[in-house]
């Protein structure tokens, strides 16, 4: 696992994806989602990479601020409510959209999709 993948997991964001999106619920799909997101962030231009890594590091605190809980200990319902609130916070809306897009792409067009495409 790369440093970015570990940071991503530590942020609690993958847990949020799994709760919110059925296609990201299986361990294999979530693994591909994390891998694609982390490896894409590793290739992003320095400024974007830096901005996103700061946003990821601050994600648990931002989640705590809007929901009163850390993402790791929140129930699925609390996670959904907290994320809905975070989507209204300028800056986090874009971070959530960008990372969710990478996660969905990585899982749905990742290695498991290859057989279907043949």
């Amino acid at each position: 696992m790369t440093g970015t993948a570990s940071a991503l997991r530590a942020s609690g964001l993958p847990r949020c994806w799994a709760v919110e999106f059925a296609p990201l619920r299986s361990p294999a799909a979530l693994r591909e989602a994390v891998r694609h997101t982390a490896e894409s962030l590793d290739r992003a231009p320095a400024l974007q990479r830096w901005g996103l890594s700061v946003a990821l590091r601050l994600f648990p605190a931002a989640f705590l601020a809007v929901s009163g809980r850390f993402p790791r200990s929140a129930s699925p319902a609390q996670l959904r409510a907290g994320l809905a609130r975070l989507r209204g916070v300028p800056g986090y809306a874009e971070v959530l959209r960008a990372t969710t897009a990478l996660a969905l792409y990585g899982a749905l067009d990742g290695p498991a999709s290859r057989e279907a495409l043949r």
């Binding site: 994320l83 959530l96 969710t100 897009a101 899982a107 067009d109 990742g110 999709s113």
Partner: peptide, 15 residues
Amino acid sequence: VTPGGLGAALAGRDP
């Protein structure tokens, strides 16, 4: 259209 491309295009919407 691919499943992932569609997912990425929709990612900013309500889950």
